[in-house]
Design a protein around this nucleic acid. Structure first.
Length: 426
RNA sequence: GUGGGUAUAGCUUAGCUGGUUAAAGCGCCAGUUUGUGGCACUGGAGAGCGUCGGUUCGAAUCCGAUUACCCACCCCA
């Protein structure tokens, strides 16, 4: 059946039958964050458009073509968040969190929005678990972030992820590299595409990403970032690698790994999976040492990463990671007559509210047989039958649906009833 | 934004070269004698074939457009 109005393109409902998987993953995020000292932060779903333009970068694809931007009734341009870092950085500065003891570590589980054509592992609304660390420039914090992500995957039982790392240099390295790229591209400007001609001036790194044939050809011989790293950046990257080595974390250095968001500096990393189809990245992140200052805050180093949860589930399913479905009904209370039905209802509330037992009873006037069938279908562990004769004798029949064993319990007094149920069912 | 594929009951599908009330399995609902589930049997509800338009005496079957989904490019998680 088709609803008159369907869900927007690229969005998905998460139905009750699978929500427990999300709860499971979210619970791992929360418990792990607690242990690792990352505190949850919640920021708005929408921000002022300029926030993303300035932080993510005006020339990036995310800003250029993927943002859900609209004018609100007050004439303000606002945008549904396409990523998590910008909002957290904004909040960090706006709430003067830099005055607290540093470093500070945050995590979030949020929805994000990108106007893209959906495909495997890509949606217009998607979920990310992300983490950010503010106030440390040391390689330890890079590895702290990487190990946090790694521990999360390990805890879930996800295997065979490849960790890719690279250094794209600090502000001054990028500056020098940028200048070199400009010098390289300038004489060839005529052969570049319209967009790239503009990019040379604004953001020459993006020319390297352009997929127009001509631009790609020209980019082939462009200088590589590797040759522009300053000694500090080289030392930093070496230390990151040494730390990873000493922890026995396998990784691959890929000099071409460049994150598509402008704010990244120095270490960038990514966890990729071979079980994902074309969108093979489950986690991406890196350092953004200039962003806080650039957004009006103090000059503080920072870094972070984000895990795409939809993609994570694809990998988890591929690897048959089993997440046990929680019990949906402990006891179903069936009733034979109208009068018994009321008793069933009373008993349900007693058990629910006093004993935390997941308890169901008939709310649709089914006959006894149908009620029992229903109890079976919802996988009730126990069945309590309130029968007419038994009720007169102050008794109810409890049946273990699996073993078919039956027991009798007193209905009154209430305390005795509840104790009786507990002793039989727990 | 571009390219390819798909579009039939809740789900998975059959409907060949156009022809009467569109079919099956699963699921759902009800019943199979008095108050007890999972099996079996019987019956029932449920789609007018994504949408709009065209060709035709006649279309789920042909053509066009459109939308959505799947996959890919780009980019990202």
């Amino acid at each position: 059946m088709r609803c008159i109005i369907g869900a927007p393109k690229g969005t998905k409902d998460i139905l009750p039958e699978v929500i427990y998987k999300w709860h499971f993953v979210e619970e791992i995020v929360r418990s792990l964050s607690l242990i690792f000292g990352f505190k949850e932060i919640r920021t708005p779903v929408f921000e002022n458009t300029s926030l993303f333009k300035r932080s993510v970068g005006d020339e990036t694809d995310v800003v250029q073509k993927e943002m859900y931007t609209f004018i609100d009734k007050g004439g303000r341009s606002v945008t549904l968040r396409p990523e998590g870092t910008a909002g957290v950085v904004r909040s960090f500065i706006e709430n003067s969190l830099f005055n607290q003891v540093l470093p500070l570590k945050f995590f979030y589980i949020n929805t994000f929005y990108r106007y893209e054509n959906p495909q495997a592992g890509r949606y217009r609304e998607f979920h990310q678990f992300g983490a950010e660390i503010f106030g440390s420039s040391s390689p330890q914090s890079d590895v702290e972030a990487i190990l946090f992500a790694k521990s999360f995957f390990d805890k879930l039982g996800i295997k065979n992820l490849l960790l890719i790392i690279n250094s794209i240099g600090c502000h001054s390295c990028k500056e020098r590299y940028s200048k070199s790229l400009k010098d390289f591209f300038a004489p060839k400007e005529e052969n570049l595409c319209y967009r790239c001609k503009q990019r040379i001036a604004n953001n020459p790194f993006r020319v390297l990403d352009c997929k127009k044939q001509n631009c790609q050809e020209i980019s082939k011989n462009a200088p590589s970032i590797v040759n522009f790293l300053c000694s500090e950046c080289i030392v930093h990257f070496d230390l990151v690698r040494k730390l990873l080595d000493s922890f026995g974390i396998a990784y691959v250095v890929d000099p071409k790994a460049v994150r598509g968001l402008d704010y990244y500096t120095r270490t960038v990393f990514e966890f990729v999976s071979g079980e994902l189809g074309s969108q093979n990245s489950v986690c991406g992140g890196g350092r953004y040492d200039n962003l806080v200052e650039q957004m009006g805050g103090p000059a503080l180093p920072a870094l972070g990463f984000a895990v795409g949860l939809e993609r994570l589930f694809i990998v988890a399913n591929q690897q048959h990671i089993d997440i046990t479905k929680p019990q949906s009904c402990d006891i179903y209370i069936a009733s034979a007559t109208e009068d018994c039905r009321i008793t069933a209802m009373e008993m349900s509330f007693l058990l629910r509210l006093n004993k935390n037992i997941i308890c169901e009873y008939d709310i649709s006037n089914k006959n006894l047989k149908s009620q029992i069938k229903y109890a079976d279908k919802i996988c009730a562990k126990f069945l309590l039958i309130i029968g007419e004769k038994e009720k007169k004798m102050n008794l109810g029949i409890v049946k273990n649906m699996e073993t078919k064993e039956t027991f009798k319990v007193k209905l009154l007094p209430r305390e005795e009833f509840m104790d009786g149920i507990i002793s039989v069912c727990c």
